[in-house]
């Protein structure tokens, strides 16, 4: 067992978990934050993407112990239905989701992409930036549109 102290969505947690516990399992099973999804177990699909210490990571291939003393933001920590994060709102406004399963990971990836960009991203750059996230429903076009729209809003702030 390993003792872990982490901050998730602004709330501190101290817990003791088996050494091999994955961050995704800690979030989903220990903290019951089930918005972070497991699609492939091998970090190919990106559904489990969360923000760890300011970086988007695939939580299915991060050990919980690696996140010790870290700060994590999951989809649940972004906004509420009445006070959405601009990327969440852009996904809804541009019909950038269908079944919704990949959406939390897509949104977390998009947020980092926009945050990291020094210049406004082109549609092609956004497509390249979304390469680590599979969506089987949308064909990506509306996701690209949503990221473009969210970027415009976030950069103007």
């Amino acid at each position: 067992m390993v003792d872990i102290t982490i901050t998730v969505n602004g709330t501190g947690h101290s817990l003791s978990v088996p050494d091999n516990t994955l961050l995704s399992d800690l979030l989903r099973e220990n903290l019951r934050l089930t918005g972070t999804h497991i699609g492939c177990d091998t970090s190919q699909c990106g559904s489990c993407t969360v923000e760890l210490n300011g970086r988007a990571v695939k939580s299915c291939t991060v050990l919980a112990a690696q996140a010790n003393n870290g700060s994590i933001t999951t989809i649940e920590g972004l906004g509420t239905p009445n006070d959405l994060h601009p990327v969440q709102a852009a996904f809804r406004d541009n019909h950038a989701l269908q079944c919704g399963f990949c959406t939390p990971g897509m949104i977390m990836t998009a947020i980092e992409m926009i945050k990291d960009a020094t210049e406004p991203l082109s549609a092609d750059q956004i497509r390249a930036g979304l390469e680590g996230n599979y969506c089987r429903c949308t064909g990506y076009q509306n996701i690209v549109k949503a990221v473009l729209a969210a970027q415009t809003q976030l950069r103007s702030v």
Partner: peptide, 10 residues
């Protein structure tokens, strides 16, 4: 349905 999916509450 989007409200729950974009907030991780599906």
């Amino acid at each position: 349905e989007d409200a729950r999916f974009i907030t991780g509450t599906g």
